[in-house]
Design a protein around this nucleic acid. Structure first.
Lengths: 107, 107
DNA sequence: GCTTTGTGCAACTAACTAGTTGCAGATGGT
DNA sequence: ACCATCTGCAACTAGTTAGTTGCACAAAGC
């Protein structure tokens, strides 16, 4: 076993490990795209703190930003979540029959 | 949006965020239970480093250890992974049809 | 009983993370 | 042109994490 390199799964699971970030994802999915400033207003955190979280999510491939005039709107791009599910199913699938059934359905 | 508290999902996703830990999970799933010492031999890391990783995994509910004489054997308990998949499906399921299909099958 | 092998605990370092503040620059409204 | 508002960047702090070393303790084997 060689020392593993940092992969997309690292940053992906790492991004999901923070409850604030998961909340941001949920918010943006249900309410649609928003700016860091707007999101920060619904939060005890600073705009910068929220922005950093959004950037972490973006680095994980879960976000995308678009400039509109002086605003920067963030939107969720959930595709990478499929990789996370894939790892779980591939790994634990050999163990758990129920998950294994699901794995077959995704391929 | 109140400041979110630390939940099981935090430690779970956090545990999965490290490539070494994912490797340990894979190893133990395919090769069966093993001790920290044995696992460390297949790794550039120290026994203590490996042990810490195993303890992180155990805190996330993904491991269980059992004492056998002077050895301590670790085994994977993958049940919590279902929560991770559940969050992903519940959250992104409303967005992605393919994941949504899966969500219905798990309920 | 002695040696080997495996575990447990503690202290320590280096690097990273979450969050802050402060300020400068850009854009839009009037 | 001016003011309000939104973004961008940088510096800084406090806490956490990954990993190490060193040593003491426990269990097997001979």
């Amino acid at each position: 076993m060689t020392r593993p390199s940092v992969t997309a799964l690292d940053t992906l699971f790492g991004a999901l490990a923070d409850p604030t970030r998961r909340l941001l994802v949920e918010r943006l999915l249900t309410n649609g795209p928003a700016t860091a400033t707007a999101l920060a207003e619904t939060t005890p955190l600073t705009r910068q703190a929220v922005l950093k979280h959004l950037q972490v999510l973006e680095a994980a491939g879960l976000m995308e930003h678009e400039r509109c005039g002086r605003e920067v709107r963030f939107r969720v791009t959930p595709q990478p979540l499929a990789s996370a599910v894939a790892w779980i199913l591939d790994t634990a699938g050999q163990w758990d029959r129920r998950l294994d059934r699901l794995r077959k359905l995704t391929s």
